[in-house]
Simulated scan of single mutants.
Amino acid sequence: MVVVGGATRLTGSGLSITEWKPITGALPPLGDAAWAAEFEKYRLSPQYQLLNTGMELSEFKFIYWWEWGHRQLGRFIGLVYLAGFLVVALRRLLPWRQSAVLFGMGLLLGLQGAIGWIMVASGLEPGMIAVAPVKLTLHLSFAGLFFASVVAFATWLTPPRRIEEARGRGFALLLLALVFVQVALGGLVAGSKAGFTFNTWPLMDGALVPSGSTLFAQPSFWENFVDNVALVQFNHRLGAYLLLAAALWHAFTMRSATPGSGMAKRATAIAGLTLTQAALGIVTLLLVVPLWAGLAHQALAFMVLAMAVVHVTRSTVTAHPTGV
């Protein structure tokens, strides 16, 4: 779902459907008349008038199918989750506390869908040719929250392979927080298309640290953190350096303190994934964000997030009632 959402963003397809119809919108246009009517709605949007004037119907169908597929996959996930929750709740397959957690996760999933429409609506405002970067970041961040909750819940229900002393929980939580921040900073990069500028590394605008006039070119200090592509990209770079340094340090300390332990192995896996993700991010930047690299970078970010969530969940519990 996250990868399809990324493709929808990178292909410029997110504003092709200008209405939010959670039920009836599941059906795509059927027939030439329906396609013409849908295309006419898009032609009234600011994105068409300011950016895509003269687009052919065949080109519109391409971006329409990406957005429709993204929404349809969201509907499918929601239905699968609802059906699964009803089975668990009605058959009382889990204790009430865990069922309550599942219910809360379902609310989070529904909220994510609503945030998706709020994001799209921001791009349909007069003068807009894309969604607002902050709202895209919010959409991506809530996707990360729901994804993390699924991983955490699954880990919670899975007995550990062996019981060992839980160590390094504080640093594991710090790593998880840094991953979330970096995902959000990546959302701002995607929302402002900052990855299509300053396509050099390690230098940026000819220096390791761009000039203050470049980083804070906007009149409003705070607007620079969202709308200034130079500062948005620079913050994402800094976040990557900080996260990589923290992951490598955590792996080193855990391997030294508890060699061969599950904690050390997970810390090493996080460090390896983070290093690979950093390298992929550099490649994506240098190649000016080709579709395959952008999607791979986003997918690997969520793999890092998954491993960080497992790491925190396992470090929180020293034993499991059915653990071996």
Score class of each variant (00 low, 15 high):
Leu287Asp: 15
Phe252Val: 07
Gly191Phe: 02
Leu94Asp: 00
Val151Leu: 07
Trp117Gln: 06
Arg9Ser: 04
Val131Ala: 08
Gly127Phe: 07
Trp35Asp: 03
Ser211Leu: 10
Gly144Glu: 08
Met1Pro: 03
Arg71Asn: 12
Ala34Leu: 10
Trp249Tyr: 13
Thr11Lys: 14
Ala251Phe: 04
Leu243Gln: 04
Met105Trp: 04
Gly54Tyr: 09
His236Ala: 11
Met119Pro: 00
Gln49Thr: 09
Gly281Arg: 01
Ile118Pro: 00
Leu203Tyr: 14
Pro210Arg: 03
Gln218Ser: 08
Phe39Glu: 08
Val179Ser: 11
Glu223Ile: 03
Phe103Trp: 13
Leu108Asn: 01
Met1Leu: 13
Gly168Asn: 04
Val88Phe: 13
Gly127Arg: 10
Leu285Val: 15
Arg71Glu: 11
Leu275Thr: 07
Val183Phe: 00
Gly239Pro: 02
Val150Cys: 13
Phe39Ile: 10
Ala7Cys: 11
Val189Ala: 07
Ser315Ala: 15
Val304Lys: 00
Gly281Ser: 10
Val209Cys: 03
Thr137Phe: 04
Thr8Arg: 06
His250Pro: 00
Leu51Pro: 03
Gly74Asn: 10
Met263Lys: 08
Thr253Val: 15
Arg92His: 15
Val226Ala: 08
Leu244Thr: 13
Gly14Thr: 03
Gly110Arg: 01
Lys265Met: 12
Ile282Leu: 15
Ala36Ser: 14
Val189Pro: 01
Val304Gln: 00
Pro219Leu: 12
Ile270Gly: 02
Tyr48Ala: 01
Arg167Tyr: 02
Trp66Thr: 01
Arg161Ser: 12
Ala89Phe: 13
Val209Phe: 11
Thr276Asn: 14
Ser141Trp: 10
Lys135Ile: 12
Gly144Asp: 12
Gly12Glu: 07
Ile77Gly: 03
Leu185Val: 06
Pro160Asn: 09
Pro46Thr: 12
Ser213Gln: 15
Leu178Gly: 00
Leu124Glu: 07
Tyr48Lys: 04
Leu124Asn: 04
Met1Thr: 13
Met254Thr: 12
Trp156Ser: 05
Ile77Asp: 07
Ala279His: 09
Ala121Ser: 14
Leu79Thr: 15
Ala143Val: 05
Leu145Gln: 05
Thr316Gly: 12
Thr316Phe: 10
Leu138Asp: 08
